[in-house]
Design a protein around this nucleic acid. Sequence first.
DNA 1: GCGGCGCGATTAAACCTTTTAATTAAATAT
DNA 2: ATATTTAATTAAAAGGTTTAATCGCGCCGC
Lengths: 339, 339
Amino acid sequence: MAQKIKLSTIAETLGISTATVSLALRDSPLVAANTRDKIKDQARALGYIYNRRAASLRTSRSGIIGVVVHDIMNPFYGEILKAIESELDRSRHTFILSNHYDSVEKQRTFIETLLQLGGDGVIMSPAIGTPPEDFELAEENGMPAILVARQIDALDLPTFRGDDSYGISLATNHLISLGHRSIAMIGGTDQTSTGRDRYQGYVNALRKAGIEVDPDLRIPGARSKQGGFEAAVHFLSLPQKPTAAVCWNDLVAIGLMNGISRAGLVPGRDISVTGYDDLEEAAIATPALTTVWNGQAEVGRLAARALLDRLAGSHEPDGIHLIKPEMRIRQSTVPYKAR
Amino acid sequence: MAQKIKLSTIAETLGISTATVSLALRDSPLVAANTRDKIKDQARALGYIYNRRAASLRTSRSGIIGVVVHDIMNPFYGEILKAIESELDRSRHTFILSNHYDSVEKQRTFIETLLQLGGDGVIMSPAIGTPPEDFELAEENGMPAILVARQIDALDLPTFRGDDSYGISLATNHLISLGHRSIAMIGGTDQTSTGRDRYQGYVNALRKAGIEVDPDLRIPGARSKQGGFEAAVHFLSLPQKPTAAVCWNDLVAIGLMNGISRAGLVPGRDISVTGYDDLEEAAIATPALTTVWNGQAEVGRLAARALLDRLAGSHEPDGIHLIKPEMRIRQSTVPYKAR
DNA sequence: GCGGCGCGATTAAACCTTTTAATTAAATAT
DNA sequence: ATATTTAATTAAAAGGTTTAATCGCGCCGC
């Protein structure tokens, strides 16, 4: 490996000072146009590589933004990440991604690493049970945090997420309007704010329609296809013989439909199923999945925007920004027929 | 934000030198045990945060490893990433993730950013059409590169991938042994080494069985569910009426099966379908997908291991390391019946 | 009583860039 | 010709950590 080219290498070969080189490369108006061009040409010719860590040591701005979610392999987060990525791309920021798999421990390690690297900010979907101190750690050290998808009640951080309670009530109402009365809710947990909101939306819709809420119809579980698939057995053996299922998300819904098919029944004919999130996959599932658009791309975009704005100095109001979900009706839901 | 705590802050409050503090925090044997403990306690008490950029400026080791693949939302890469992540986790390295979406431009930008950050190494699944110079750039600047899933013919970099030709021939042979004679190959491109290998595997298997290769039965397309779904129409309208399809990967296969269902036929009864990769999802698809295990976890693990070894000094031999795929037979493939 | 040895701690330089204040050179005004 | 303004460049310090070289000191053996 040839020896490292630095500012001073360029300066020496050109017989000028490093200060001028530095200024020229940053396009400062302080340096004459033709010296600037000469410098840039030389930098290119020598294969100069800007040393960000030296620079950021001086400027205390690293250009690094951390993003941490539960699991990047989950398409729900994937769609959020994609939006964040494309927003950050056009702003010369590098982003560091991590999963926390709902381990508070892992999440804290990530925040610490990011602080060590001098991260400019962080966008997070916090792990279940995150203690507020972990975020205060970030803020205290000058690293602003923005929350997506989940909120932390004790903290007043800028948060972008869908209106879960409203969204699930949309799905539940849709099933009720099709004549269903025995409706199960499948997947997810009640230990997150999201979980409580969703359950609340389900309960509210049922109550409003005068349907009694049966706690046995709540089947929590993993928020994955696997989770939905596994829930199918339990679901089909319920004594109440539900005719419809409101699922935690599209993954659970697709898994559940697979499980139902495996048992010889036909989803979208014998059983109505709704999803949540409107993943790309929902439209091509069989049957095409009725679901609730949850605006993940919007969430990601707004969160990234908010962080960039804050880094640029503007301190926009904290608090929770809710995206209004919308119904997407497809073939997995049909009018009630006795089973 | 309270003012920054640095080594010298700790040193002053304790009336010792920063050198001692630095050594103590790195657990150097040069400092006495009880001073070390005192220092560590004080560091914790003051909320000291290690400044990695200052350190790496000095040591020229950043602890950062770059990972770039086509698309992290693709579960095939997701499984590789997960393996890399867990291997890197236990070694105090931070990893920076990026998609290149097969844009050589985006890939180069990423490599440059990584160099600026002083990345210690990079693991890549190179973009289609990557010019060798882009990797030489990395190597020249002391940043070793390891390839996964795809290779670059002109370069002798350490590469870990499945044996595609062999793997696809396994799938094709399986269908032939079930009596199928008109077998299509769906999805993917022939512009990557992977693509050419896979097509070769398909062709070889057919030839060996004395079946004529019909180029019309090759339907290239996006390597996604969407791609498979869209290919279904074309597939079903082929004049040759194929009774089976070898798909580029599980996503294409699942999409194709969805498309076939949508057209009123039953995959795993009317049409046999094989996937590739054995994603978690394959087992719970309906019907459960016959596919080829491609060892993504193994690929990721070995690649990470190889990079860490190289960073630790050992220069293991370059070249291509092939993982031997294995057949996973499930319900999506059935014996031939005239259609 | 002295040279030598080891332990524990320190000094000081180095890593590379940015930025402010200062300097020099050139242009304009008087 | 000199004084003043403007433009272009530079010197030097700062940013936080690591590490080779050095130092001080108590102790051992002779």
